[in-house]
Design a protein around this nucleic acid. Structure first.
Lengths: 232, 232
DNA sequence: CTCATGATTCAACGGTCGTTGAATTAGGTG
DNA sequence: CACCTAATTCAACGACCGTTGAATCATGAG
């Protein structure tokens, strides 16, 4: 039996919810649940509105996800492009350290977007796969440029496969951000934050030793990721 | 209006479906869809039986997943334990190469189980998380032992953090198996199989250069992963 | 043959999901 | 004030999900 129409007010709540706030909420819920498991109802609850409102601002759940990507990737690509400027004469190892800093700052606090991107690459829908791979290609190209400049300057050993090394460098960094914090308390007996800090430093040292023309040369001091100098 | 009872035979089909066949089907569907998205109906369709039959052999979907893990992990751990035997006097770099071989052989053809394990570690249910981390700990311990033997023999540089290095070594290898094949055709212009082959070789060379006591010493020849010698 | 038992299917339950159409309200404009 | 439009909510639809209980069949033992 259909109950009689309710007497609740049906209009907009005192606080407006715009598309950007919806994306904030989606980011949080995607981070917790993943793309498939995150429900529009949960996103709406997080944003404090009705699920149907999402369809006023976006065409579908998938459109919401691509809008989320469009908000996240451009700044990363912009900073990486600036960092890969050939006129930057700093040691290559320092510039690689800043690559980690850029990823850390832009994606560090958001495990959802990373797991999401990775998950969609490995087994996502075809359309989303191409979208993500396009964004990733732009970022990866800059790191590759940086490595090739290092080879040209004689700092990086020739014979290195720049694209493969880029894949190694970036991919393991994302794993350090993603899964090292989850296993660190159990396996390394340290806090998640310390794990990421030590992990990034250890990874850069190992990676640089692996690609440097002179692997035994001491590393220059690496600024702490929390310090001001780390932010270009 | 409920239609009258059908006249289809209700008994068992000519082909029996036992628990192991159900696990085979589950493995395939989990591989395609992931744990959450894989439906019991899809698994049953893959196995050629009714969804309800799953509940005759397993208590729940989650129990099916843990049964799948119990079928997969023990052989890996057994082989790794054998490889980490301290009386094995082969060069450490060769033994590390065999670690890759073991993972490759046991998990190489099954992206589902890998993505699944990783996904459940990063954001899985609490019970499953502990289950998986327990299995992973047993495998990781053997690799760590191997690295520590390398340090004791003077082949690996002291000052290396063995557990962190283990994390790097194994984790990036899994990424090579998982995502390199997906991006290789687009970024490296090579086939997925060639990408895994070159990726594993390149990774071992870079990693070994990063941890070796003498990083400039030439590597011994690494047997091909397809050859007989690769299988201990 | 009879019958017990294990294997399998059917149909349904309650729940959640993405999505939609209509109803409703707030705020600005005339 | 009246009116229009943009923003928001409600209620529902159909689909699929994990799970269950009862019914059915196959098979082997007595």
């Amino acid at each position: 039996m259909p109950r009689p129409p309710s007497n609740r007010p049906r209009g907009p709540k005192p606080q407006r919810v715009d598309a950007d706030q919806l994306l904030d909420a989606a980011q949080e819920v995607f981070a917790r649940e993943g793309l498939r498991a995150a429900s529009l109802r949960a996103i709406a609850r997080q944003a404090g509105c009705d699920p149907a409102l999402i369809y006023y601002h976006f065409d579908s759940k998938e459109a919401m996800f691509t809008a989320l990507l469009d908000r996240r990737f451009p700044p990363v690509i912009r900073e990486l492009t600036h960092l890969a400027d050939p006129s930057d004469a700093r040691p290559t190892v320092l510039r690689l350290w800043e690559v980690l800093g850029i990823y850390h700052r832009h994606l560090g606090g958001d495990p959802g977007i990373r797991s999401l991107v990775r998950g969609e690459i490995v087994r996502g829908t075809e359309g989303i796969q191409e979208l993500i791979q396009g964004r990733m290609a732009a970022a990866a190209t800059q790191v590759r440029n940086l490595l090739e400049q290092g080879i040209a300057r004689g700092e990086v050993r020739p014979g290195l496969h720049p694209l493969l090394a880029t894949f190694f460098f970036v991919k393991l960094h994302l794993e350090i951000l993603d899964v090292l914090p989850m296993v660190a308390p159990r396996f390394l007996n340290i806090s998640p934050e310390a794990a990421v800090r030590e992990g990034e430093r250890g990874w850069l040292e190992l990676f640089w030793r692996g690609i440097a023309a002179d692997p035994l040369a001491p590393l220059p001091p690496l600024p702490d990721s929390g310090s001001k100098e780390f932010r270009p």
